[in-house]
């Protein structure tokens, strides 16, 4: 009986005829993307096509030039900072922090939107932070110095912080951009696992889909192969415009990828049946 109500709490995050940019200059126009809880959306496009600007606008960090962002049917600008942060978590690119916080302290900061202005994290918040680390299998890092971790570990910690935020939506800005090959695989694997966990639970119990188990994920990446690996839905961007959005098989074709990136790109199927794409070096 409760299930429909719970699902309605987290409906979707969508943009409507959105124009994005700084000042008065539009970087992108007529952008329509949407993500539901339980969906992975992969945002692909060349450098400078407006991915980060789009994310900042969808997080309410940047005002839209035209159009708007809707969160569960409500305009984003009508919501307060904590209200937005209880719905959308943001995972920035792993960065070197200015101060050597402990990993658990970093993850605990994900609880800020659930705490009063003068409050400090309590036992419940500590448990949430710790179980977020555990879910990613990095609880042994809890008391380590965040500033001394590797790039891949830092990225996982920031994802853990987003999980501790317990939001129906997570936006990840190029989570694999600055990572070496092995760490890319680790981080991507964890993102896929989060998604799969949800799938399993949905099959087992179709009641009580709580926010933490059915998240809508939007991530940007440089690498189209990652969209194949994740089996994600894809939104292809070029010069601030949405070229095509839809399931990976329809969007990531040789023609569209070549058009978007401006070089000859070929999508092929490997002997194991996995799709992958590669570019030819121009003469």
């Amino acid at each position: 009986m409760n299930a429909p109500g719970v699902i309605q709490v987290a409906d979707r995050l969508a943009t409507r005829d959105l124009a994005i940019g700084y000042g008065k200059v539009a970087i992108g126009e007529n952008i329509n993307v949407s993500v539901r809880p339980g969906q992975i959306l992969c945002l692909l496009g060349p450098n400078g096509c407006g991915k980060t600007t789009l994310f900042r606008t969808m997080l309410g960090l940047l005002a839209p030039l035209r159009g708007g962002v809707e969160l569960n049917g409500q305009p984003l600008k009508a919501l307060s900072r904590p209200e937005i942060a209880r719905q959308i978590a943001y995972v920035p690119q792993a960065h070197a922090p200015h101060f050597p916080y402990q990993v658990l302290d970093i993850v605990l900061m994900g609880r800020a939107a659930r705490l009063g202005l003068f409050a400090r994290p309590g036992e419940r918040d500590r448990v949430a932070a710790y179980s977020a680390l555990k879910r990613l299998g990095i609880e042994q890092l809890a008391f380590r110095d965040y500033s001394r971790l590797s790039g891949g570990q830092r990225q996982l910690v920031l994802i853990a912080r987003a999980l501790a935020q317990e939001t129906p939506f997570i936006i990840l800005d190029e989570p694999t951009a600055s990572l070496d090959f092995g760490n890319q695989a680790v981080v991507l694997g964890e993102i896929r696992k989060l998604f799969r966990n949800k799938d399993k639970r949905e099959v087992q119990v179709d009641l009580q889909i709580d926010a933490s188990s059915a998240q809508g994920i939007i991530l940007s990446t440089h690498d189209p192969d990652q969209a194949f690996l994740l089996g994600a839905d894809v939104a292809l961007m070029k010069d601030g415009a949405m070229v095509k959005a839809g399931p990976v098989a329809e969007t990531l074709t040789s023609e569209l990828l070549s058009h978007v990136y401006g070089v000859s790109i070929k999508v092929e199927e490997t002997s194991s049946g996995r799709r992958t794409c590669s570019f030819n070096l121009q003469e």
């Binding site: 900042r56 997080l59 309410g60 960090l61 307060s80 900072r81 904590p82 937005i84 942060a85 209880r86 959308i88 978590a89 943001y90 920035p92 922090p97 200015h98 101060f99 916080y101 302290d105 900061m109 994900g110 800020a112 939107a113 659930r114 705490l115 202005l117 003068f118 409050a119 400090r120 994290p121 935020q165």
Partner: peptide
């Protein structure tokens, strides 16, 4: 005193974590 920690992450991150 706890919220000052969040501010030290930088404006965008602090705002996305729900801090005014």
């Amino acid at each position: 005193r706890w919220r000052v920690n969040v501010l030290s992450l930088g404006d965008d991150e602090a705002r996305s974590l729900g801090v005014n």
